[in-house]
């Protein structure tokens, strides 16, 4: 037994033996100790550091193998440093994604039913065989398709967030696009932001980016920062069509008390000075006592965008009330096709 544990621990050790110099897989720039630069923050009350954060949340109402109803909420706010300003936009809607056929083609068709604060979306029919939906040799599955509506709404919220007058629009997560039609939506958002002199960025709580040698990138950067004795730092990782088309990717540690660094995607056209100002804006907004180093505007957006299970269940009850007994029974049967695991979990 000890033998295999030894082998596992050796393997872990090897995975943490970071090189002195590397390149993030799929990116264009080389990285070493010199790539990690110290950042500082000195308060200048006259500097406009207002930012608007966008986040979305969702919870499933009904799900069968071919139909999913999801309650979605997207929210944006505006902060000046740690102060929340009087600007809020919110949209709550139900998205219905169905599997439909068109000859030989199998498509995902999504319809949107606004509940509060309309989010007018034109959801394209998506081919399950579309390369952006496929996973290996498999057609795209419903689980992925149901998050399309929320993601599209988040992009459309960039326009609303720009209405706040904030110079920086920070989305929860990366700027990576993953659905058919999403790039077009993102491009429209970038263009509108650019025309208003604003910068769009995405901040990810987690990152899967690795180096060419197969090491976790964030681990490598942390080690380099540690060597330089840096408590607040940023590192430009570079450009990657795969990880973030049209974005420059950075890693940032925004507070000396932070327990981790975050991936920051910044729209490609932002200049050096704009990026520096964005990072100052984020630093000024990342002083929340319980989670220093993470922007408070995103914590706020997360809280307001969250959709509780109870909330989704309430909508479910309202929908089931509209069905006759026979239809409701059929629906439940269809849902059971996906619930085998739940039953096993209940058995302990």
């Amino acid at each position: 037994m000890e033998d295999y544990l030894d082998r596992i621990s050796q393997s872990i050790k090897r995975s943490l033996s970071f090189p002195e110099r590397t390149v993030a897989h799929g990116f264009d720039g080389a990285l070493d100790e010199g790539s990690v630069a110290e950042i500082t923050y000195e308060e200048d009350p006259s500097e406009d550091l207002a930012l608007s954060a966008i986040d979305g949340g969702s919870n499933t109402i009904i799900k069968t193998p071919t139909l999913a109803l999801v309650l979605n909420r997207v929210y944006c706010n505006k902060f000046d440093r740690m102060k929340k300003l009087d600007f809020v936009e919110l949209s709550t809607f139900v998205s219905s994604t169905r599997v439909v056929t068109d000859g030989d083609r199998v498509l995902f068709e999504t319809e949107v039913y606004p509940q509060q604060g309309a989010c007018p979306l034109e959801m394209p029919k998506v081919d399950t065989n579309d390369p952006e939906m496929r996973i290996g040799r498999m057609r795209g599955d419903l689980d992925r398709a149901i998050s399309m509506a929320r993601r599209f709404c988040e992009w459309s919220f960039v326009s609303r967030a720009l209405g706040s007058g904030a110079g920086f629009i920070v989305m929860d997560g990366s700027l990576q696009t993953a659905f058919p039609g999403e790039s077009e939506l993102a491009n429209r958002a970038y263009e509108e932001a650019g025309s208003r002199g604003a910068v769009v960025a995405g901040l990810s709580k987690s990152s899967m980016i690795y180096t060419n040698e197969g090491y976790p990138l964030v681990g490598f950067l942390n080690m380099m920062a540690g060597r330089g004795g840096l408590s607040r730092w940023m590192a430009r990782v570079g450009r990657s069509e795969e990880w973030a088309p049209r974005a420059e990717v950075y890693f940032v540690r925004l507070h000396e008390g932070a327990d981790r660094a975050f991936r920051l995607d910044v729209f490609e056209r932002a200049g050096e000075a704009e990026v520096a100002r964005l990072v100052r804006s984020l630093q000024a907004n990342s002083r929340y006592f319980a989670y220093p180093g993470y922007p408070y505007a995103l914590i706020d957006a997360h809280a307001y965008a969250r959709v509780g299970k109870e909330e989704a269940m309430h909508i479910r009850d309202l929908i089931l009330d509209k069905l006759d007994l026979e239809d409701a029974s059929r629906l439940e049967q269809a849902e059971r096709a996906l619930m085998g695991h739940d039953v096993l979990d209940e058995l302990g």
Binding site: K83, K84, E256, G257, Y288, F289, P292
Partner: peptide, 26 residues
């Protein structure tokens, strides 16, 4: 646990420069 950790950090000065926003909903 996070509250205890955060308040400890604030008290002992290991995480200065943090704030509790006026309109914190948490």
């Amino acid at each position: 646990d996070r509250l205890f950790t955060s308040s400890g950090s604030m008290l002992e000065g290991t995480k200065p420069n943090v704030e509790i926003p006026e309109r914190d909903l948490r």
